[in-house]
Computed example of a mutant assay.
Amino acid sequence: MPKPRLNWAAEPWSDDEPLECVMVIPETRDTCSFIFRAPSGAWFDYQPGQFVTLDLPVDPSKGPAGNVQRTYTISSSPSRPLSISVTVKAQSTSIGTRWMLDHLRPGMRIKAFGPSGIFSFHRHPASKYLFISAGSGITPMMSMTTWAWDRAQDTDIVFVHAARSPSDIIFREQLEHYAARVPGLQLRLTVEEPEPFQIWHGYQGRLSQIMLGLMAPDYLDREVFCCGPEPFMQAVREMLTSLGYDMGRYHQESFGAPARTEAEVPVIDDVAPDEEARAQVVFASSGVTASCAETDTVLAVAKRSGLNIPSGCTFGLCGTCKIRKTAGEVHMVHNGGISDDDIAEGWILACCSHPMGRIEVEV
């Protein structure tokens, strides 16, 4: 059988040509990487962090009418231009991804469009980077990290990734290989829970302000790139905002609709305390009402009003200052001192809760 020859005279790939699947690599229990080549031997030109749109024949019996188009971040790096890969994770509502995992095999060809997108550290040169990802949001970070590795430059990257368990960390072995050989890549992993009967040396628990400070003490000096589920990215934004980070240096990529141009970037309209806005805290059990700024914490307002709320750490970790809120809304960025169930039932941590308008608490 003749060996395939590299076509050094080939042109860059264009989406007039289909992609041919050449490998399917299992990554975790519900995640696979699909590697594609251009049948003509064309090479791939893109920026690390960009995405490609795949035209998937989820119902071949209906012809083109049965196709769906799905965008996937490219997990490979343009420093390795002879192939391109996407890494997909099955979700309960997946259609296109489910079809890929169940049916896409080497030798099959599919139509693709792109690459596209503006989520790339090529567009934001910096001396230091902080990559923050969760789940399959790791894919653009992997592309950018591989580029930095292949370029053999002295890039300073702190790579923070959150997963359910150690076995759910996509690209773990490859990232550990990189981090073990270059001083400029610091790998910081956190999981919700470790595997039974296995030792876990990384962080455990939801990513928090305290954890972020330990992982990257100089986070204020770093350009931040974030990708993951929207609730995760919102929590990261709230953490950084409350820590005084310059959000003009924050960049994120959405799972749902990656932006092709700056005009398509959605406006982030997070609720945040405003030092000019006035608020009011009604301490119902004590019969005290106090005016304050939205940037004041409920604990600080209580102390100024001569009321005692037991407290400990004062940064949302110990849970000592947990009280029940009976009306109104607060902005709370905690460090694990309260559960989601408690929050759903109306409990807050007074030390890190800021009243947004008028609130009532049982104090």
Rank of each mutant, 00 (worst) to 15 (best):
P273D: 02
T314I: 15
S75R: 12
E195R: 12
V298F: 06
Q69L: 09
I35L: 15
E264I: 09
A216E: 01
S14F: 13
G137F: 09
I74E: 07
P183H: 00
V265G: 13
E253G: 02
I348K: 10
G256P: 02
I210P: 06
A180Y: 03
G41A: 04
P217C: 01
H161E: 01
G244H: 10
A290T: 03
D341W: 15
V298W: 08
R188F: 05
A112D: 12
S127V: 05
L307H: 11
D30K: 15
D156P: 03
G96S: 09
P125S: 03
M247F: 00
S77A: 12
C321F: 12
N7D: 15
C32P: 03
S143A: 13
M141Q: 00
T145A: 04
P81C: 12
H124N: 07
E176H: 12
I25F: 10
H124T: 10
N7T: 09
C21H: 03
P217Y: 03
F119Q: 01
L299T: 04
M108P: 08
V224L: 09
D150R: 12
A272Y: 08
L189S: 07
P183G: 02
I95D: 04
I84G: 08
P2T: 13
S77N: 00
G41L: 08
S77L: 04
Q47N: 11
